[in-house]
């Protein structure tokens, strides 16, 4: 059974309640069409589960098949330097087919980022290294394709489409509530 390595830390991009009973980690590729389809599914899950869910996104760009994926991932990391990781993450997934350099610059501008700073960060090693570190952690965790999901540190090999993942996560919440009572 593949386990998440390393575990989620404060360095991760986290949405939702950090103390939630259920933690969902996605290893994703911004250019991957499956990840694009998973994007609204996750949004729906987050809405339904509210404070019961902590969601974490880690980069897993398959650069040989998706030539713009690593650059897009670096752009989201560079946006994080100005506190806009999730905004950039969302805008990229919503415009998956337009991910060249100019497109990414345009998204950054539309988010009101300081463009001089963004361009500097985008071209620095720091943020592309971060993407590579995520990728390596995914390999070590046994990610074998994208999107790769981990629930409370364990690899989720089920179906994520429709409501399967939601139901699985909800069952985890119930299981934990039982333990506490």
């Amino acid at each position: 059974m593949s386990k998440l390595r390393p575990e989620v830390t404060g360095n991760d991009h986290i949405q939702g309640n950090v103390n939630a009973p259920v933690e969902l980690v996605e290893y994703g590729d911004y250019e991957c069409p499956h990840c694009g389809r998973a994007y609204p599914v996750i949004k729906k899950i987050q809405k339904k589960m509210g404070d019961n869910l902590k969601f974490v996104f880690r980069n897993f760009p398959l650069s040989e098949v998706h030539p713009d994926a690593r650059m897009a991932a670096t752009a989201a990391e560079a946006a994080d330097a100005q506190g806009k990781f999730w905004e950039m993450h969302d805008i990229i997934f919503e415009n998956q087919r337009s991910l060249n350099y100019e497109d990414l610059m345009g998204y950054a501008e539309s988010l009101g980022l300081d463009m001089d700073q963004f361009e500097k960060d985008f071209n620095s090693r720091k943020y592309s290294d971060r993407v590579d570190e995520d990728f390596e952690s995914g390999l070590r965790s046994g990610v074998n394709g994208t999107p790769g999901f981990f629930v409370n540190g364990e690899k989720y090999n089920g179906i994520w489409e429709d409501t399967e993942l939601l139901h699985f996560l909800q069952s985890k919440v119930h299981a934990q509530q039982h333990e506490h009572h």
């Binding site: 390999l139 070590r140 965790s141 046994g142 990610v143 074998n144 394709g145």
Partner: peptide, 11 residues
């Protein structure tokens, strides 16, 4: 039918 990934090789 299962892609074994790379964690085993890396370990």
């Amino acid at each position: 039918g299962v892609n074994p990934g790379a964690d085993g090789i890396m370990d």
